[in-house]
Nucleic acid binder design. Structure first.
Length: 490
RNA sequence: GGGCCCGUAGCUCAGCCAGGUAGAGCGGCGGGCUUUUAACCCGUAGGUCCCGGGUUCAAAUCCCGGCGGGCCCGCCA
């Protein structure tokens, strides 16, 4: 089974015996990025290139091989005649697929017209003891291998590499966008004595120094608002949240959020900010704000150009189901809950029931093109400010794209007395068994008591945004190292 | 939490339904080949058939239990 590894260990040993370090500290010369060489090749010029050997084609006295450097491939050739006996035999005896090498030589085009380096000298930079599992450019297929050994998935498949290029470029462009809007990027604690800002089951941990049980944050919200209380007008943070819940194609227990808070803004301002961000970042990252996203068996064109559609949650029900939920008596709503086998932890609550029904019936299926769903029932949104025109609603919106909730935002609640009473409601539900009810955060209420200006806040799911940008419908495709059970080493 | 599917060589898979010597292609190794590019030709090595139990003269194959993975449903973003 390990015969291949054994053979390569032999080569490693032989090299050492010959006084050739299989893992040298430095290159013998200068390496130019393959990206630059491919972009504007100067024929006949002497170049030095470093990379991984991902393909070898032997033709007797001539060998073609492919190097990949930072995702860019270039072909090299070694021949007895042009490269010399010594270089030829070094490659033949000591180089395998997967090795990192440094080569110098001259650029030319082969008969088939491919840009190639005619190698004159080479240096082994790092010996690989294992061969890549697939040929370069071909996808690793076993999903378990892909997720467990993601480095192989990325190494061998440019399509997979591209997804992560999109991911990290997206994060970079979001930062630039927010900076340009005058937001300051801040940091808040990941370990917290009281978690909050969302409805979710937390991860618990123990702080030895304080002899106390703490939590990993489930959102960034309550600490960012403390920054607004502190007097910063525009803050944002990009960071990991942790929710101790199930793993599926839209959820990973550890996921990345961008949250922002802006003093003197309301949720209408935040809608404009959000649609501008989503389209601007798309254009920066992809060069376009029109994407294709798999919905069921179809690839659907999605336009991310502002303005996005705006619809209240009640109008969305009317539009997509023909049902006037607003006018339904509680008994009817309970019937619907029954029909869709939705259980409400913590007892029946009209507002929260309506939101659940919305998630189930409307959101996933109908909201493919970017849509702001607004004005949620107040009782479902304990951190949002009641609607200026209707006390039973909250000034809240969710952004849906591709049937996924991408963002959640409020005109933030800044009345400490109301906030305390909403926390009390949550506490009651918690006592009635709702594991995900918000815990009462006294310290946060006290902060509000010192005065928080009118504020608009946004939470944006980065992983899901990247899914939309990359056109993939599983969060595992965009999380570099998705959560998976560890395996014993064999 | 519930359901469905999958697990055989480094990789992709066949063999399982209908029990009877463990197979192919690619990759590896050896040989040939000086313009190939998923190179080609010849040869060769390589297996805990996921694990444990049961049925049977005989289990990769049938049955039970477990482990791992994927997908769907429920819940959350």
């Amino acid at each position: 089974m390990s015969s291949e590894v054994d053979a390569r260990r032999d080569i490693r040993r032989k090299l050492i015996e010959l006084g050739l370090n299989p893992y040298p500290h430095t290159l013998k010369g200068r390496a130019t990025p393959v990206r630059d060489i491919v972009k504007s090749p100067t024929l006949g010029s002497n170049v030095g290139v470093a990379g991984r050997v991902v393909g070898i084609r032997r033709h007797g006295g001539l060998i073609f091989f492919d190097l990949v450097d930072d995702g860019h491939r270039i072909q090299c050739s070694i021949s007895r005649g042009d490269s010399g006996q010594e270089v030829f035999e070094f490659f033949d005896k000591f180089i395998n697929l997967g090795d990192f090498v440094y080569v110098t030589g001259f650029l030319y085009y082969t008969k088939k017209g491919e840009l190639t380096i005619s190698v004159r000298d080479m240096q082994l930079l790092a010996k690989a003891l294992r061969s890549p599992p697939v040929k370069w450019g071909h996808r690793v297929l076993d999903p378990e291998v892909r997720y467990r050994k993601r480095y192989l998935d990325i190494m061998m498949s440019p399509q997979v590499r591209r997804i992560f290029e999109i991911r990290f470029k997206t994060i970079e462009e979001i930062r630039k966008f927010m900076w340009e809007k005058g937001y300051i990027e801040v940091e808040t604690p990941i370990l917290q004595p009281i978690y909050g800002g969302a409805a979710a089951r937390p991860f618990k941990t123990y702080v030895w120094a304080l002899e106390a049980e703490w939590y990993l944050r489930i959102s960034l919200e309550l600490y960012l608002k403390r920054f607004i209380v502190a007097g910063f007008n525009k803050v944002f943070e990009i960071g990991k949240n942790f929710r101790n819940e199930d793993i599926d194609v839209e959820h990973n227990p550890e996921f990345t959020m961008m949250e922002s808070y802006e003093a003197y803004a309301d949720y209408n301002d935040i809608m404009r900010l959000t649609e501008e961000l989503v389209s601007t970042v798309a254009r920066k990252v992809l060069g376009t704000d029109v994407v294709e996203y798999p919905v069921g068996k179809d690839l659907v064109k999605i336009s991310l150009s502002p303005p996005f559609k705006r619809v209240t949650i009640y109008d969305a029900f009317r539009e997509f189901t023909g049902v006037d939920v607003e006018a339904l008596p509680d008994e009817k709503i309970k019937e619907y809950l029954e029909r869709y086998s939705i259980k409400l932890a913590g007892g029946y609550d009209r507002g929260r029931a309506i939101v659940k029904l919305f998630d189930r019936i409307v959101g996933r299926e109908h909201l493919i093109q970017p849509t702001f769903v607004t004005d949620f029932p107040r009782s479902s949104s304990p951190l949002a400010k009641p609607h200026r025109n209707r006390l039973d609603l909250a000034e809240r919106f969710e952004l849906y794209v591709g049937g996924m909730e991408l963002a959640n935002a409020y005109t933030e609640l800044n009345d400490p007395e109301l906030q305390a009473s909403y926390f009390r409601e949550e506490e009651e539900r918690r006592l009635m068994g709702d594991m995900e009810a918000h815990p009462f955060d006294w310290d946060f209420v006290e902060a509000l008591e010192y005065g928080m200006p009118p504020t608009g806040g946004l939470g944006l799911g980065i992983d899901r945004l990247v899914m939309i940008y990359a056109g993939v419908n599983s969060i595992k495709e965009v999380v570099p190292f998705p959560m998976i059970k560890p395996r014993e080493f064999d």
